[in-house]
Design a protein around this nucleic acid. Structure first.
Length: 293
DNA sequence: AGTCGCCTGGTA
DNA sequence: TACCAGGCGACT
């Protein structure tokens, strides 16, 4: 599912192709997922693309921003002269664009340049807001610090970063199951079910453990495992489980490297014990009952 | 803290 | 044809 590495991959693609382009028209085909007045952004130029946890923000040069959350099945796909022939477009895109899953079309000033927002299950949202009111969107307002990567975020963003010290405080003060805690976007931004399962597996911690029972070294291990699996996810262009594709409609490869996620019934890669699946916090939870303690 | 609802496509 | 996938907000 789209988590931090997937959304970051999309952000990098959008940043590459959208910056400097002017929005010429906005066609909202599914009003339910859209808020704000499209007229506010007509003629505005795209300045940069940012990401907050699993949320995307396209900043414009007229004081407005396009904020979006793709939830489970949303896709932002660019088509334009630079990418007229895109190789390996995923079937997950649903065919020629626009298609029946395309809910918003941004026409950009360049011959035949478009940004399509697709979403099969329609859980995601797109909002037009004044840039200085972004933090009034509850998702952004309540978002916890993020395990970001040094190479993609500069020092100005330090307040947004989940440091080891912040992570220790969060873990030590919670009585929730550790997996549920690290997926709580209000506590930590960006981790979803795939990277939570894989991070816990990598650090050999049982997902059911109450957070405050983790020792100092277990917390450190979990912190570095989370960074490790997120980084591996990003290096692989994300995991194309469900309908995730990048900004050109291509699939990622992290699903080929899952450690624990969706591995139930298969032998543990460390000790060969059969991997378990349980439900925790209402979500599929995968782990090795032998080496995760 | 736990459960439901939002949706649809893919699968058992 | 019923059920499952899971991010997040709302509700209990």
């Amino acid at each position: 599912m789209p988590e931090l590495p997937e959304v970051e991959t999309i952000r990098l693609g959008l940043q590459k192709y959208l910056v400097g382009k002017t929005i010429e028209a906005v066609d909202v085909r599914l009003k339910r997922i859209f808020t704000g007045n499209p007229q506010e952004i007509i003629g505005a130029k795209i300045r940069n693309v940012d990401r907050f946890g699993k949320g995307l923000v396209i900043n414009l040069d007229n004081g407005y921003s396009i904020a979006a959350h793709i939830k489970l099945t949303g896709q932002f796909i660019y088509r334009g002269p630079e990418v007229s022939k895109v190789s390996k477009v995923s079937k997950k895109v649903g065919g020629e664009l626009p298609n029946k899953f395309t809910h918003v079309i941004f026409k950009l000033k360049a011959t035949d340049a478009f940004l399509y927002y697709n979403d099969i299950r329609q859980f995601g949202w797109v909002k037009i807001v004044k840039s200085d009111k972004l933090k009034e969107i509850s998702f952004f307002k309540d978002l916890g610090p993020e395990p970001m990567f040094g190479e993609i975020r500069d020092k100005q963003q330090e307040t947004r970063r989940l440091t080891l010290e912040k992570f220790e405080k969060i873990v030590k003060s919670s009585n929730t199951a550790i997996k549920v805690l690290i997926m709580d976007q209000k506590k930590i931004g960006g981790i979803g079910n795939i990277y939570a399962n894989d991070g816990l597996f990598d650090s050999k911690i049982d997902p059911r453990r109450k957070a405050k029972t983790l020792s100092g070294s277990e917390i450190k291990n979990l912190y570095s495992s989370i960074l490790k699996v997120l980084k591996k996810g990003l290096e692989n262009g994300g995991a194309s489980e469900l309908n995730y594709v990048n900004a050109l409609g291509q699939e990622g490869k992290y699903q080929l490297h899952f450690l624990a996620y969706a591995q139930d019934g298969k032998p543990c890669v460390r000790c060969k014990t059969k991997m378990q699946k349980i439900t925790l916090g209402g979500r599929g939870t995968y782990f090795c009952s032998s080496c995760q303690k």
